[in-house]
């Protein structure tokens, strides 16, 4: 297969960027999209041009490093797919593929397709955890967790922190990421003690960096883990409760 790639090149955060066109020939349909970028990069190095910088690591859709706009979609076409899991058999021979970095004020560009997603860490830092220091844990089976609850928490916990939700959202909102982490913990019995403090802190930190959600629902289709916007609704509910709950009564059912 042969492809024409239009790739966004930008040497630094403040430099001017533009699309450059590259040819990628002799591509097998079994190759992943990142392997095509590898091929382009090898050719670029041969030709004495700096290779395209892009983040990647696990190449199996779990580390959340990779991520770029491919043909106007975060992580490219297909649902539940990270860029590294995008295989060339999804495209047609001869296609032109346009690749652009993720754009968000919270994700300043580093170089070419690499962006800085550390704002997501700030959200987790603000409350995306259960405060239990090493050694302070009770016996694991002491608190039963209904299977449906464990499954629902796992659905949310699958988030890989790639930021595709932000990239895809017309508002640049990080609602799906934040809500996924928050609900993973808020759904579990272990997470109840800090549930409302967590909701408050995570939402308010999120809002310092990201846009707000108007329920476009684009994020859940971009999300490589297919996390549902249900979690956003739960988060909105928890946030309201956080602001109005008499927390002295939290110990009661």
């Amino acid at each position: 297969m042969d492809f024409t790639l239009k790739v966004w090149r930008q040497s630094g955060p403040d430099a001017r960027g533009q699309f450059e066109t590259y040819q990628a020939g002799g591509i097998s349909e079994d190759m992943s999209f990142l392997e095509v970028l590898d091929v382009v990069n090898e050719n670029l190095i041969d030709a004495g041009t700096e290779p395209i910088a892009f983040d990647h690591d696990c190449r199996e859709g779990i580390c959340g490093s990779c991520g770029m706009m491919v043909n106007g979609q975060a992580h490219g076409p297909g649902t539940r797919t990270a860029t590294c899991q995008l295989h060339m058999r999804t495209f047609k021979d001869g296609d032109t593929i346009t690749v652009e970095p993720w754009r968000s004020a919270a994700f300043p560009l580093v170089r070419d397709l690499t962006v800085n997603r550390s704002a997501l860490d700030r959200i987790v830092e603000s409350g995306g955890f259960i405060s239990v220091s090493t050694g302070a844990a009770p016996e694991a089976n002491l608190i039963p967790v209904p299977k449906v609850v464990a499954e629902a928490a796992m659905d949310a916990a699958e988030c890989i922190g790639c930021g595709a939700c932000v990239a895809a959202c017309p508002n640049g909102a990080a609602q799906l990421f934040t809500a996924a982490k928050m609900q993973h913990l808020n759904l579990l019995p272990q997470g109840q003690s800090e549930r409302y403090q967590r909701a408050e802190r995570m939402v308010e930190t999120m809002e310092e960096y990201f846009g707000s959600c108007t329920n476009h629902g684009e994020c859940q289709y971009a999300c490589p883990k297919g996390i549902s916007i249900d979690v956003i609704a739960y988060m909105n509910r928890d946030y309201m409760a956080a602001k109005s709950k008499n927390r002295k009564l939290l110990g009661q059912k």
Binding site: I130, A137, E139, A140, P144, P146, K147, H184, L188, Q190
Partner: peptide, 16 residues
Amino acid sequence: DQCVAQGVPFAREYGG
């Protein structure tokens, strides 16, 4: 014990 307390959503039986 530690991981469960941290909220790691390990697989569960129906009984929890």
